[in-house]
Design a protein around this nucleic acid. Sequence first.
DNA 1: GTCTATACGCGGATAGAC
DNA 2: GTCTATCCGCGTATAGAC
Lengths: 186, 186
Amino acid sequence: MRYKPGYKQEKRKELLYISGQLAKQQGFAATGVDGFMKAAGVTSGAFYSHFASKHALLKALLESELQQSFSRWENNPHNNPHEWLDFELNRYLNISHVQHADHGCILPALASEVARSDIDIKQLYQQELLRGHALFTQHLGSEDKAWGVLCQLVGAISLARGMADENIQKQVIESSKAFLKASLNV
Amino acid sequence: MRYKPGYKQEKRKELLYISGQLAKQQGFAATGVDGFMKAAGVTSGAFYSHFASKHALLKALLESELQQSFSRWENNPHNNPHEWLDFELNRYLNISHVQHADHGCILPALASEVARSDIDIKQLYQQELLRGHALFTQHLGSEDKAWGVLCQLVGAISLARGMADENIQKQVIESSKAFLKASLNV
DNA sequence: GTCTATACGCGGATAGAC
DNA sequence: GTCTATCCGCGTATAGAC
């Protein structure tokens, strides 16, 4: 065998990482298989030895990215609710997240593409998001607040990314952050 | 002349209306010029006598749809802040809006496509959204609250649309609504 | 496992008849 | 103003050599 055992698994992870960046930046549907693979330094022919179809890539991508998001939330080092929330808000609602979608959360980047996908994509998405919601509920002490914060985070980044001026982008996320802090007396 | 004067303008409005529904449902980039025109009962050749390019259609679409959203907010019949907000929340955050994107607000449907568009699209988007923000500020008495509510509305619909089960969709928007009502003591 | 080459369809846009 | 026909590039996916 010309390739080490375990090579394929590592290569797959690498492809997912690079494709994830590109999908978040340019959109998943808008990027061709050629584009994804060119960014990873291989050709489109190689793609199909890792994924059955482009649809399969989207599913693997969502799973990988949502699990990473969950991990980040889980690894928040703070314990008391106030500090925990503050840490998340500062990490999520900042100008760098608005301007560099490729290194950001997949939720605001691909929400509308998931909304237009078929049922198995939505089920995966829902399942992972419910895990996130449970974690937020645990820290915020309320299911409503947990959804409220999640929706606010996604909405703020989504809206800010459409703005032409950086100052307006900042205004949106800073207002959103202030609104959340005032709303959650935790 | 075989066509009445004013015909072209009316036809353009009709094309915008139908294209808007399709763009919100399927995505703008994902729908071809053929698709838009087929829905309107004409062929792709006719398209180019109304719009210079597909890009020009997106711009016209955003302008038309955002002005409609603004009009809806403006025509809210209530005057006192509490009733005004209640009316908006009930209109925006309901299961029908989640499930029928084609008749809904353009913000959650095309936010990510605007984020990936060029500067003149973003400038138009920003300009119209700032008008909306000013209106919300006027009724809520706070710029932070106005952005907070706008972000929450967009985020809630965006997240809910990715959910596989209707019950979870309802949970998201009802929680979001409850969160907003609790946060805004207007 | 990755490469090149290729089949085949769809996308945006234009030309010319009516 | 709208139609049909068409150019050309890009997209997904497959076949076969290495």
